[in-house]
Amino acid sequence: MEIKVLFMIIIYSVLIQNFVLSRFLGLCPFFGCSQRISSAIGMGCAITFVMALASAITWIVYTYLLDPATSIVGFFTEGNGAPDLRFLRTISFILVIAVLVQFIEMFLQKKVPSLYRALGIFLPLMATNCAILGVAVLNVEGFTAIGIHTKLTFIQSVTQGVAGGAGFLLILILMAGLREKMELVTIPESMKGVPIACVTGGLMALAFMGFSGLSF
């Protein structure tokens, strides 16, 4: 059962409810980093990595600090229960993500300079990327499309983070491939740049709608 749920989360996050084309999360890198396949791969990998890590850490913060049902604060109040801190969700998630991104940047710079040079310029943009805060919020809100109306489990959250990032990577690479080809085509002056990228994105979204009938 658990495996089936994980599988469905992956299929939904990558294909059916793709983060970019169906949920409209992370459109800035979708338009900004899709000129070249190489930079698309770099950005996509960086996003996948941060999304997976952010899913894990925000889940822990939410479960053990904010949610009164499972909060460890309850141990210190002598049975009076933990305070409901869920209203701090947005601010704590965004701070955790900002700190995480900063740490990853410092760690890579010191330990893996080659990876840092490859991902480096994309990392600072990550703190305010809506796909990352988006996946963190989605994790604690459940996955209504497959009938999970409560918070996801830890494994499910990380799976959604990785799969969402993989879906992102897929779309970025496809888009970059199309845009590299499009440079060779004559396009009316007014359609150049973002407009044609929008129309291409729309056609891709239409194609991805075909996945929505997948059922298990």
Partner: peptide, 9 residues
């Protein structure tokens, strides 16, 4: 009552 439809529950 919950039922799995085409693209949602």
């Amino acid at each position: 009552a919950e039922g799995v439809g085409y693209s949602s529950t």
